[in-house]
Write a protein that binds this DNA or RNA. Structure first.
Length: 825
RNA sequence: GCGCGGGUGGCGAAAUUGGUAGACGCGCUACUUUGAGGGGGUAGUGGCCGCAAGGCCAUGAGAGUUCAAGUCUCUCCCCGCGCACCA
């Protein structure tokens, strides 16, 4: 029977059914066993899986199966991040219901995942759009509200005109909507927020615990949280009580501040410009800036636009009156929306001052360039140096002056040292239908009232017509909106906004621990056993969004006393993207390869093997059809090996092995060692597979004489080891072969992982390299126990070596035991 | 500009952590098996010189440390990703 398309189909279907029926991957809390939790970022159920999914889940599956074979109690669940806009869009397009569409997609997705042979505990499957899931979203939201972490406020918000909804800061990528890439605009709205900023210090500090996360992800989160130390400095307006507060990280340059700049949106602007001589001109400028898109404004290298207000403010450290300007390069959302400008020591200020002819004063000297003057400087000097023109601080080095001046200003009452965070609270309201309803009710008498816990879940009404027009569909659903106030019973109104779907995915890993618990968000004991996630695997695109939010939720749960750890994901692996012809595979580029079409021809095992062999997990992977064929060929060779050369024989004697038998036995042990270490130490699946191929090549050359039980026994043992080592990578074929070879276990998963013996690895001889002056000149087989003297003698006696030595004296003889010698002549 | 990765054959990639550069695979070439196709087998496959034995060169560029450098140090170039008028 050849390992062809027909046979592959049969085998893979057969074992998928066996796993299903026997519940091979079902797992329960087992205090006697060490647990291991492998998790991949759950998919949005679009229906079809793509190569990115296949890669992500295959990596996870090898780890899960490897850990199972090592005797761990392995939790490996799968589910669906099922709320979200694509379902609404699909509903409009196909005139159906988002729920129907989503559940149909889930069914299809599940079938495709099963076809890949992943080792999931399907009993734990969950979908976030299930009311038994999202009721706990609502419960968490209410808990957050109780703690003051969920609150409503009116504020300028990011608005995506195409998705017709608000967006969190994290969802705005370079001024564009993360989902549809439309230009994001600003709107003033009253919206729900989650106070993630309450945890800013912990979110930053605990990054230090994440020693097994990629440095890149840590750096991205650090940047996003953006802690900076500085001073808030108060500039009084000349002649009035108003004060402009600026934030600066460089208080050491305060004596060089020659003007102050406000963002056009700054609240003090209106009062300042009223009645100004050039009021019209100023208003025109402000209007123009308002019309600019944020990205245009932020990348504005062209020149720094600004206008003078005609007013002045007083520099608190020297009493100097300096002009107040309004400019687009100052952003309202960062710091205080106002800056002190030090053109000599800040490049942006430098450009602005040059453009508008504003005064400059050097307050930090450049030790490399004592001749530096305002006139001859070509750009701002932003490095450190001794202070000048700075009264009592003259001569102090700038890095010391930062703290010294900050403290002095605090004493003088002219400013205070402060910490600024870039992280903003998380805008959670979405004006969309297909999400978790926010569990609040508006009553004219009682105000904003939480839905009582006993009334959860607030269910999404079904069979709603989605038109894509006129705002959220829930706004037009009378039976949803009208509700009695839980406090006074009067006619009241439900909140019609739903939660951003990142809420759903911020805690699903906890729900997997006890997915059917009807009375709790998750079972504390189960979570205590299974958490934290030992290995999390997913794409880098979630480096900030999902991973930051999940860390926030975990810290909140800890404060609630539901968990006792700070961080949810112990180890994180961000798998590389799958490319086709050098570009990321994507529907929009039209360069996708459908995993299903590959499975149909070569089977899931070949696809899995190919993807694992082609590149290390973190690297980009260039798809190639040739590589699948290569993987199939390798599996085919193993198949034929078992079919044609595996023969049940009387177990050979325990007599010591010699010659080729001993060599193969050593190679077998060496391969077990290599594969085990490659998987365990850094997931080097590509080299693990390559070492199995090498062993396979050796088996091909290994001759078994007719009737030689000894040699046949060694061969059998080697074939058995290959099948077991390969089983996490290509599970279906290995199950089948193991059974063919007489394995009695219900599944290879139950067979303990192969062990190697150090004794068998020992070699009698070893090849060493002989160099003359660092160049390779010969190779010698020497006994492992050979002494340095013996080796030296042997090498020096060699004709070829002598040719290169040419009777010159050997100045130095370097000997690295069992590796090389180097003669320096 | 700042941060994180990278740069090794025609291609995907290895390299025992300073010790034989290119394992393994894809592709290609020749021979072979088969009625043909597919598939299988054998040999070869970094560049240059050479019939060969062999020699020289070679890990983005240049310098340095060392008996020995893809690996360590410095300078520079290039590519990818992320962040960014962040005050």
């Amino acid at each position: 029977m050849p390992y062809n398309t027909e046979e592959i189909k049969k085998i893979e279907a057969k074992w998928q059914e066996v796993w299903q029926e026997r519940g091979t991957f079902k797992v329960d809390m087992d205090a006697d066993k060490e647990k291991y939790y492998v998790l991949e970022m759950f998919p949005y159920p679009s229906g079809k899986i793509h190569m990115g999914h296949v890669r992500n889940y295959t990596i996870a599956d090898v780890i899960a199966r490897f850990k199972m074979a090592q005797g761990f109690s392995v939790l490996h669940p799968m589910g669906y991040d099922a709320f979200g806009q694509p379902a609404e869009n699909a509903a409009i397009k196909h005139d159906t219901d988002p729920a129907k569409w989503t559940y149909a997609c889930i069914d299809q997705m599940r079938t495709e995942l099963k076809r890949m042979g992943f080792s999931y505990d399907w009993d734990r499957e969950l979908a976030t759009c299930d009311k038994e899931y999202y009721r706990w979203n609502q419960w968490i939201f209410l808990k957050m509200a109780e703690c003051g972490l969920a609150y409503k406020k009116a504020s300028p918000v990011n608005w995506c005109p195409s998705c017709e909804t608000t967006l969190a800061n994290e969802e705005v990528i370079q001024g564009e909507c993360w989902r549809c890439k439309s230009e994001v605009t600003q709107k003033d709205l009253e919206q729900w927020y989650l106070k993630i900023t309450q945890y800013n210090e912990k979110l930053l500090e605990d990054l230090k615990q994440l020693e097994y996360w990629p440095a890149r992800v840590i750096a991205m989160q650090e940047n996003w949280i953006g802690k900076s130390y500085g001073v808030n400095i108060h500039f009084k307006l000349k002649g009035e009580g108003d004060v402009i507060t600026v934030f600066t990280t460089r208080p050491d340059t305060i004596f060089g501040a020659t003007y102050v700049v406000l963002a056009p949106e700054h609240p003090l602007v209106e009062g300042l410009i009223k009645g100004a001589e050039n009021e019209r001109e100023i208003r025109k400028f402000i209007d123009e800036v308002a019309k600019e898109t944020r990205s245009a404004r932020v990348t504005g290298e062209a020149g720094k636009g600004g206008v003078f207000t005609g007013r002045t403010a007083v520099n608190p450290v020297n009493g100097e009156a300096i002009p107040i300007w309004i400019a687009d390069y100052v952003l309202m959302e960062y710091g205080t929306g106002a800056i002190m400008s030090v053109p000599t020591h800040d490049q942006r200020d430098f450009l602005f001052a040059k453009e508008h002819g504003l005064p400059m004063r050097i307050v930090i000297s450049d030790p490399q360039n004592p001749e530096m003057t305002v006139k001859n400087m070509a750009c701002a000097y932003e490095e450190e140096g001794a202070l000048v023109n700075s009264a009592q601080f003259d001569g102090v080095n700038s890095d010391e002056a930062i703290e010294a001046i900050g403290k002095w200003m605090e004493q003088e009452g002219t400013g205070e040292m402060t910490v600024h965070w870039r992280l903003r609270d998380w805008l959670i309201s979405r004006q969309r239908y297909w999400g978790t309803p926010i569990p609040f009710i508006y009553c004219d008498a009682c105000g904003t009232v939480p839905v009582p816990e006993g009334q959860l879940p607030v269910e999404l009404p079904e069979n709603i017509k989605i038109t894509g027009e006129g705002g959220s569909p829930l706004d037009h659903c009378a039976e949803f909106i009208h509700v009695a106030c839980p406090k006074c019973g009067a006619q009241a109104r439900r909140e019609t906004d739903t939660m951003a779907t990142f809420f759903d995915s911020s805690w699903y890993y906890l729900r997997y621990c006890s997915p059917k618990d009807g009375g709790n968000v998750f079972d504390k004991a189960e979570a205590a056993y299974w958490m934290t996630v030992d290995q999390y695997i997913g794409g880098i695109e979630h480096a900030i969004l999902h991973l930051l939010y999940s860390r926030f939720f975990t810290k909140f749960f800890k404060d609630l006393g539901l968990v006792d750890f700070d961080e949810p994901f112990h180890r994180l692996l961000t798998q590389g993207m799958v490319l086709k012809d050098g570009e990321v595979m994507s529907k929009s580029k039209g360069n996708t390869v459908d995993p299903d079409s590959i499975i149909a021809k070569y089977g899931a095992d070949s696809l899995r093997l190919c993807i694992l062999f082609a590149a290390p997990p973190e690297d980009q992977l260039e798809w190639s059809n040739g590589a699948v064929e290569g993987a199939w060929k390798f599996l085919n060779r193993i198949w034929n090996l078992v079919e044609k050369r595996y023969k049940a024989v009387a177990q050979g004697s325990d007599a010591p092995l010699g010659g080729q038998d001993k060599d193969l036995e050593r190679d077998r042990n060496a391969t077990i060692k290599k594969v085990t270490e490659d998987i365990a130490e850094g997931y080097k699946f590509n080299t693990a597979i390559s070492s199995m191929m090498i062993l396979m090549n050796k088996v091909d050359k290994y001759k078994v004489e007719e009737g030689s039980d000894q040699a046949q026994g060694v061969l059998n043992r080697t074939v058995g080891s290959i099948v077991l080592l390969l089983s996490p990578f290509a599970p279906h074929i290995c199950e089948e072969l193991w059974q063919k070879m007489g394995g009695q276990e219900a599944s290879v998963v139950e067979v303990p992982w192969p062990q190697y013996s150090e004794e068998a690895l020992k070699q009698d001889t070893v090849q060493i390299i002989a160099q003359v002056n660092g160049k390779l000149r010969g190779k010698f087989d020497i006994g492992v126990e050979s002494s340095e003297e013996e080796v030296k003698e042997l090498v020096l006696a060699d004709k070829k070596i002598q040719e290169f030595v040419q009777n010159k004296p050997v100045k130095k003889f370097i000997y690295v035991p069992r590796r090389l010698v180097n003669l320096v002549v």
